[in-house]
């Protein structure tokens, strides 16, 4: 890691530190304070978008561990989110458990389902495994659509708001303080996980699974672990989504949504914690922008019809994903690194 001139790392701990200079500490703490004070001064609409971004970020960080660090494509992230969301809502409505119990239960159940669909990794690898997650996506979606016994079905399921000490957390501000700490925590965990023994094993598996196996890494169990963590994050995101949107519909958890999550990762930069944050903010923001601009577009060109919003956001999204892969496969995270490198040296060229 490059450091500004004059910052010397005279111990291993210092060399490994994520935050190494006083300025970085200042920016981090200041940024976090600003982030957690933001509900006080930004309007509700923006706050709800930020909440959605934070929920999505949790799912994306999970996907980042599986796809970015372990190198396995998951086409079922949205389905695993659904598992978490529905489990949490069923536990809450049937057994009357509080949200603080159902959230980890939802995450855990999604994690276990993820392991189940990761099992073929014992025999196959690479894109064969992507097929298994594709199957997961279709099977879970089908189960949601066709089992009214679970309270599922094509219609929306109402989810009650979480409570904290007798206070119902219904407003966007309240939910912000539930969601945002978890999103920050998820990012922090991901950043640190990949620096541990487990994370290094993930990266070795991604870079060359044969070599990793020869080095004594149990590739199968690490892949399963990656599947578990990935779906655990997805499940938590799903449970949060249910509590935030107060309703769950199978239509939110389609294959398209899973592909969109992969796209967010691509845009941000695969295998980069900061990239996942950039990608989420960029893509969710873009989606909201298109949704906001579409009525204006329809008023300019009414012959396009009402269905145009959905098509435009799909086109924009597909185009962005394709163009990023084509021209900047390392994503926004790479641009950010370039910016940091030039900023560090500024005003000198090198």
């Amino acid at each position: 890691m490059d450091r500004p001139c004059g910052v010397l790392c005279n111990s291993y701990a210092k060399d490994m530190a994520i935050v190494s200079t006083r300025l970085q500490w200042g920016l981090l703490v200041g940024g976090l304070i600003l982030l957690f004070c933001s509900p006080l001064f930004i309007n509700l609409q923006l706050l709800s978008i930020i909440n959605l971004m934070a929920i999505t970020l949790i799912a994306i960080q999970g996907l980042n561990i599986l796809t970015g660090y372990t190198g396995q494509i998951s086409l079922g992230q949205a389905a695993f989110m659904a598992v978490g969301g529905y489990t949490s809502s069923i536990l809450a409505t049937r057994f009357g458990l509080s949200f603080w119990v159902t959230l980890p239960c939802g995450a855990l159940s999604a994690g276990l389902v993820g392991v189940l669909f990761g099992l073929p990794s014992l025999r196959v690898k690479g894109f064969y495994l992507a097929m298994s997650t594709l199957a997961a996506q279709f099977i879970i979606y089908w189960v949601l659509m066709h089992t009214p016994q679970l309270g599922a079905g094509p219609d929306a399921v109402q989810v009650s708001a979480p409570e904290l000490g007798g206070l119902k957390l219904t407003s966007q501000q309240n939910m912000f303080y539930v969601i945002m700490p978890l999103a920050v925590l998820a990012t922090f965990l991901t950043k640190n996980l990949v620096r541990t023994r487990v994370g290094r094993a993930f990266i070795a598996t991604r870079d060359n699974d044969l070599a990793a196996e020869v080095m004594g890494i149990n590739v199968f169990s690490y892949k399963l672990l990656a599947f578990f963590i990935c779906s655990l994050f997805a499940g938590a995101a799903g449970a949060l989504y249910g509590a935030w949107a107060r309703a769950l519909r199978p239509d939110y958890f389609t294959l398209m949504q899973s592909i969109m999550y992969l796209g967010m990762l691509v845009v941000g930069g695969i295998g980069s914690t900061a990239g996942a944050v950039f990608g989420t903010i960029f893509m969710v923001g873009l989606d909201q922008l298109v949704t906001a601009l579409a009525p204006a577009l329809i008023s300019i060109a009414p012959q396009l019809g009402l269905g145009v919003t959905a098509s435009i956001s799909k086109i924009v999204f597909g185009l962005v994903m394709v163009l990023f892969l084509r021209f900047e496969p390392r994503g926004l995270a790479h641009r950010w690194e370039l910016f940091k490198a030039s900023y560090r040296l500024w005003p000198f060229a090198y």
């Binding site: 086409l75 592909i259 992969l262 796209g263 691509v266 999204f317 994903m321 394709v322 892969l325």
Partner: peptide
């Protein structure tokens, strides 16, 4: 990356189709 590209293409084709 190539496989992800085909996924992006799938999104794009769906969008153009529905437009």
């Amino acid at each position: 990356a190539v496989v992800l590209l085909t996924l992006g293409l799938s999104y794009l084709l769906k969008g153009v189709h529905s437009a």
